[in-house]
Every structure is written in structure tokens, then in C-alpha cells.
Amino acid sequence: MSLDKSTVVQIATLARIRVPEEELEGLASEMDKIIGWVEQLDEVNTDAVSPMASVVDVKLIWRPDEVTDGDCCERILANAPKKSQGFFAVPKVIE
């Protein structure tokens, strides 16, 4: 697979990262190399192998349905650049 500049632009947009035009070429080639490196895995036949979700043999842990957390509005908002009346206040986003 080879990665072109327009794909890098698309990825940057989705990730909300501003990339100057002159850096696109270099990034495309770097990312292309990373993908190429990972693609080596395609050489192994994994048809009969189920995906491994964890390297250790553990199961998903469940919690009982009990309210054990919350009621810490001040802590939640402590690092908010702007807040008002218990809300986070962010620049207006409207459709």
C-alpha cells in the first residue's frame, strides 16, 4: 500500500491536526514506511487463528449495577479553561 499526500491531509483533518503543506510529502513517506513495516505481518497465514485480544489470559471484568461514583462536579470542572453554572463553557458549536 502506498500513501499519498491527499490521504495525509484527510488523516490530519480527521485528527484535527494542522499540517503545513511543505510537511505533507515527508509525512506521507514516513507513514508509508510505517505501514509497510506493519504489512510484513501479511506474510503469515492467519486464516485459522482467531484475533488475540490480550497477551495475558484474563477475562473482561464486570461491575455490579451500583452507583459508586460521581457527585464531584468541582473536580470534574477543575481544569476547564472556562465554566459557568456547573457547565463546561466551550466556543459556540452549532449546526
Binding site: 459557568s84 466551550v90 459556540k92 458549536v93
Partner: peptide, 10 residues
Amino acid sequence: QHPSHTFVDL
């Protein structure tokens, strides 16, 4: 709720 801000409740 505000002219220039959106308020977020989580």
C-alpha cells in the same frame, strides 16, 4: 444559554 458559548453537561 450564552451568546458566544456552548454549555456542556456530561
